[in-house]
Design a protein around this nucleic acid. Structure first.
Lengths: 207, 207, 207, 207
DNA sequence: AATGAATGAGAGTTCATTCAT
DNA sequence: TATGAATGAACTCTCATTCAT
């Protein structure tokens, strides 16, 4: 039969998710009404409740989807061959780009705002799931220590520091609304240069 | 007569603000009802509307007050005499302590969550007001460059980097609910040590 | 001050109860919407929720009030002096009148319909509360056995039987909608005569 | 082709009715959702609407079926030969058993609860259909008056009185939730004894 | 000046019914 | 003929705000 099972038509589901994203992203969780979402999705209210148990579940879906996009290809960046400096710079640029783009910033803002009600949701951004950012970068640093390219007593600390230097300022400015547009490629590149430079001034092996 | 003009009794105002602070901080903006605040403040609803235009304005007052507390004594830290390293460490410790304490984290979370509705409010945390954090620290770095203690092409960039290194990881963990309690004094001290160490490895004048 | 406390203005309360009675009585519990009641009461929805916790509580109030009216003066009827036959007839008439009037019938119908959800409510009609109908009449019968006017091995059984004979048929016809109007005084009187006659044929002392 | 016309397959119809019976009996009319019934019946929603115009019609069918069961074999009881007392007692026992069993009580409660919306439905329980209870018992009493076994000026009144005495108290207690389980055979038998005894004390021919 | 009872629009969710498949 | 995904009106209840006292 050509018809889909209840709650399983991917086109409808996409429609709902898309409508919900628009509404949630622009007004947040509480201020988003299911009527707004209904309207934005072009789907009836009843249908939404077939696809999602309730407002909260729909919300979590939106946020988790948004989160996926940021981190997915960062690991592959670190797994390529090449000189430390070059790889770290590429990593730093990609990370900062993902963290400061419009969608990420909005998703994080909203998730942070409901942290008390959806604790796992916010945690998941930098959370303990395998392959989280800190672990991944720590592994890279440890490997390059073994190759003699880096020298650090605490690879994890070094990783954390690079992460902060790479995203910190621009991301915070975006999060707190001090920068209305995502930073330009040039700005990101400069910040990455500076981050990697300071990092290497502390952890590269002096000749 | 000893009566105050409408909306001008500072004791009443304090009462309202205190009640609102309790309620907003514990449940956020949307979940806080004016009835709850009325109850917590021990003031009638009508009175609240004499002192504050509406819920949003009251909310902004609360958040701005919370913000003041974090940054107020940081500048004096930088204005003391002494060796760069020592001063920066003290600054770093105070900043991280203020940024990760319960009240700050809650206030930021709530403010971030309603960023779309109260854009100036969130901006004000790290905003462009005179004496903001970046300017203050930049000035300090520039001064120490003039004294020959530090060497940096871009004092502002250096300041930003120190700020990120000083608060970044712990604060982000607190904000995203990955750390339920504020970090201990030891944790903060270690992070400050490491931050200042990396900073100086890049910007201190090599002998 | 001339103003009433929240939920304590007897005029408003009466208005709400009156509106609710109209709506509940004419369509039952489930089919009655709070909007209908709002309209019928001429009071805002919020106000109703100040006076009553929820729909169920309002409903219980309506039904219990209706119940009060039926039974309140029956006991005094039995406490008067006079020959058994005359007293029982008066009791029988009053009971049947109360049980078959429009309001009682509607209240009972609706209460019966929601017996699973409000069990105490239905039970209260003939319930175990002190001074319920069976006890009261049993006491009377027992007293008249002691005076030698009646003879019955089981006064309670005799009381129950009189109650059924007095109300049974007419009440059941009313309850099941076979009689659109309350029975006339004549009909009730005849039924009472017949009930008392059969009762006395079994329990009066033969000379 | 062996297919049935729309809405005419008796097996499907039975399935629907059975599913609806389960659901209606356990939660009542309003709380029963067509989805529940769909599930209980194992038939699609569309199919139900082929066999029954709407929820109300389906409901009426269920209630009428439940009603049939109570009264169907009572007439045969009265048509047997034997002494009046014995026959009346058997009749009384069967009537009380049928009127107080779980299914009857539930069906009556639900029907009574929606009496305003389905007036004919409730009426049908004791209604004017040929062969209703009162007529049947009146005929029996009249016949036994002609044989000289009973003496009553108004056979219909006598019949009504016996009916009330036979079911009244126990049934009312069941209907109003004062008795959670159906009465035991012993209780019913005793009540029947007492009912017939009082009846005969009034209407048997004295020797 | 201060109060708090009253308002009513709007929240999330359910469900009888329809109609494309 | 039978299906069940989709609809959207209607449900109960909440709450920011007003205004008579």
């Amino acid at each position: 039969m050509g018809r889909h099972a209840a709650g399983e038509d991917p086109v409808k589901r996409k429609q709902i998710v898309e409508g919900a994203r628009q509404v949630f992203m622009s007004v947040g969780f509480d201020a988003a009404s299911m009527n707004d979402i209904t309207r934005a999705a072009g789907v009836s209210k009843g249908t939404i409740y077939v696809y999602f148990e309730n407002k909260g579940e729909l919300f979590q879906t939106i946020i988790l989807e948004a989160k996926q996009k940021i981190f997915e290809d960062l690991r592959t960046t670190l797994n390529t061959e090449g000189p430390v400096e070059e790889i770290l710079k590429r990593f730093s640029v990609r990370l900062a780009t993902g963290m400061t783009c419009e969608e990420t910033v909005k998703a994080m803002r909203i998730a942070i705002g409901v942290a008390e009600r959806f604790p796992e949701l916010v945690r998941s951004f930098f959370g303990d799931h395998p392959g989280n950012l800190v672990d991944t970068l720590s592994d890279f640093v440890a490997a390059r220590i073994r190759t003699g390219e880096l020298a650090a007593r605490d690879p994890r600390l070094a990783a954390v520091q690079l992460l902060e230097l790479s995203t910190g300022h621009l991301w915070k400015q975006r999060l707190f609304g001090l920068m209305d547009e995502p930073p330009s490629a040039v700005e990101i590149s400069e910040m990455a240069d500076n981050a990697v430079a300071l990092f290497l001034s502390g952890y590269s092996v002096r000749t």
